[in-house]
Design a protein around this nucleic acid. Structure first.
Length: 114
DNA sequence: ACAGTGACAACAT
DNA sequence: TATGTTGCCACTG
């Protein structure tokens, strides 16, 4: 087990814990915030390494893929992730989280609707 | 000690 | 639009 993890993983957990309810961030954004432009993968690894106890205090479900995709897809965890997000009032569009509404830094142009 | 592997994403072709 | 390559961190066999 020893999910002690290195400093980077700890930074990921610390940052994800700061994501408020009803808000989401992407792997890429987390990586960038930690100074790793191309470290999105490492972020995923960090979350995957979460132990059950850690997962209880880290809102891992608020971390989604680019464009609001749920990377875990159709896996149990993926379904669970969507369920939790929905429960927090996160809106989905085309099976993706509406980053324009819940993301920190929307990548694309703002939707003219709300 | 070394290779494989795993919640991603940007860039090149 | 799709496919291939590369970068990133830590753990396991």
């Amino acid at each position: 087990m020893s999910r002690a993890a290195g400093a980077f993983f700890q930074q990921v957990y610390a940052l994800v814990r700061q994501v408020p309810r009803g808000r989401v961030v992407t792997y890429g954004q987390v990586a960038r915030l930690l100074g790793k432009d191309r470290g999105a993968r490492a972020v995923g690894w960090a979350l995957r390494a979460l132990g059950d106890e850690e997962a209880a205090r880290v809102p891992w479900h608020r971390v989604v893929g680019s464009g609001g995709r749920v990377s875990l897809g159709v896996s149990p965890s993926g379904l669970e992730q969507r369920r939790r997000l929905r429960r927090e009032g996160v809106r989905f569009a085309q099976g993706r989280v509406d980053l324009a509404r819940h993301g920190l830094h929307p990548p694309g142009p703002p939707p003219s609707r709300r």
